[in-house]
Design a protein around this nucleic acid. Structure first.
Lengths: 306, 306
DNA sequence: TTGTAGGCGTTATCAC
DNA sequence: GTGATAACGCCTACAA
């Protein structure tokens, strides 16, 4: 039993048919073109020889790599592991593998990695990076490469995207605080150049307005170091965080958060991309996933009100 | 400017040479076989046409995929993102990409994913999974597929491996507690079937012995729910954790931990694998990476002693 | 229903 | 130094 890799010819020879016939028998899509017992013979031969089709040869022929590129800023950002895990699970179920590229938010690296992945002939791309230049995207679209944006949207809604609903999440946070009797509500804002930061700001402002509260400009803060200012949470103030994470319930006090369905974000993205790769057309889809409010110890009724 | 993919023939035609010559000129390894100005002409033509070699065709011909399989239990285990990130960084620098497979510690899935990756003709494998059957490993070895174990070792040291030194880490933990005056030291043990659990147990026992302390069997515990038993840390007892993590310094009290160099674990593993893929022989290498003690608030001098 | 033939894009082995 | 040729393993018109 030598270890030479067994090829389609070997299977065909063993089954006493032509390689073309063996190919047809082995491929579920074309099996019906071949007589039943012939097919069976081929299948048996393949099994007996331990035949595995060479995906490289197949790719060269079919011009599909069963491979998908995924661009993220940084895998060690705790946001991404569940997303990537979900992507890989869903893709694997469809016979695809993901090539992960970390860009660290560097536009130049994004460009580079994007092109390397195109060079590797990925069948589609998932983009979770913020700065990717639109020329590149337009280029990909023109070349017919399916692209799905993840947790990020095209300004003009010109591309498929799957995101969590940051604006809605922020409204839930504000509503919760209002329900606890709070009226002086601050917003510690993230960078406004990326869509998540902007959505949250928008959500904050619209929620404040909806509740008839004034958003004090002095309470829209960009730094993040006020816990140590001698204030006690939740006695002196309530805090709602974004993005639930492991261990965040072990802080003192446990942090009330808006939890986003990150795993599902990956699943939905993969699903949409697979449909596009499969040739499914249709209008651009912009999908939002709803967040959830997880109430813990960092929020409490307002003392002045309660 | 039609969008047909530009191939080597196109470049050759443009440069007025034979495709074989163009190939030689384009490949750094063989460029010296071609006359300088010819090479330059080819390079210019390639540049002008925006030529990118087709890696699939190249793989088919050279039987190398520039691809590496990585089997881990679960990417969402916070241990793995830095490791995987490091692997990908180092591999990317060498022109390789990683295919990640999550196995959830399920032996059957491990087998399956392993074989799928072989079928995809990966050039090497990184295995961070515990249960992989040795027949499979032997099979891979026999087939000449480079394999490096990560954070796991072959019992008989028959395979390359890179691990953090759990035993040493445990000895550091015990030594720290002893230095604080503690003598009644418990060990909350992980599963003993995997090498990490066993190494830590061994380290614990040897350290206790080295310090002339008796390891009370009642204090070797496998469950993990004793913090809520009305004990105050660090007043009533000191605690040392394993595996430093984000946010673990925000617990109350901040957890003293043994920190392992996870990023470096990935880097070293990738490095070793790349060398093996590159045909570098030599004896089996078993590499250990040293841990570090990070003292925080969860350990304090023993009251009885101090 | 099955066989024939050609090509996917590249590189390796010959010649010249 | 360069060109011709074949082959990597597979798929798919087309012909029989």
């Amino acid at each position: 039993m030598t270890d030479r890799t067994v090829t389609l010819r070997d299977v065909a020879a063993q089954a006493g048919v032509h390689p073309a016939t063996a190919s047809r028998a082995l491929n579920p899509e074309t099996r019906l073109l071949v007589r039943d017992d012939t097919a069976r013979r081929v299948l048996e031969a393949a099994e007996a020889l331990g035949y595995h089709p060479n995906p490289v040869a197949r790719s060269l022929r079919t011009r599909r790599s069963n491979t998908v590129g995924v661009l993220i800023p940084d895998l060690t950002n705790p946001l991404f592991p569940p997303i990537v895990r979900a992507l890989e699970d869903r893709l694997a179920a469809a016979g695809y593998v993901a090539l992960i590229g970390n860009t660290d938010g560097d536009g130049e690296r994004e460009r580079l990695v994007f092109q390397q992945m195109r060079a590797r002939h990925v069948d589609g791309m998932v983009l979770a990076t913020a700065h990717l230049s639109d020329p590149l995207l337009a280029d990909a679209a023109r070349g017919g490469l399916p692209v799905v944006l993840m947790n990020r949207m095209a300004q003009d809604h010109s591309l498929d995207s799957v995101s969590v609903d940051n604006e809605r999440g922020m409204r839930m946070a504000v509503a919760h605080l209002v329900a606890e009797g709070h009226t002086r509500i601050a917003h510690i804002a993230g960078p406004q150049e990326v869509s998540t930061g902007l959505s949250r700001y928008r959500g904050f402002m619209s929620a404040m307005e909806a509740h008839g509260l004034e958003a004090d400009p002095d309470l829209i803060i960009t730094a993040k170091a006020l816990e140590e200012a001698g204030l006690n949470c939740p006695a002196d103030l309530s805090v709602v965080g974004f993005n639930d994470m492991p261990f965040i319930d072990r802080l003192r006090p446990p942090l009330t958060t808006i939890r986003f369905p990150h795993y599902e974000l990956g699943t939905e993205t993969a699903q949409l991309l697979l449909e596009r790769i499969g040739g499914q057309g249709g209008p651009v889809r912009v999908i939002y996933l709803a967040p959830e409010l997880v109430v813990r110890g960092s929020t409490a009724p307002c003392r002045r009100t309660g």
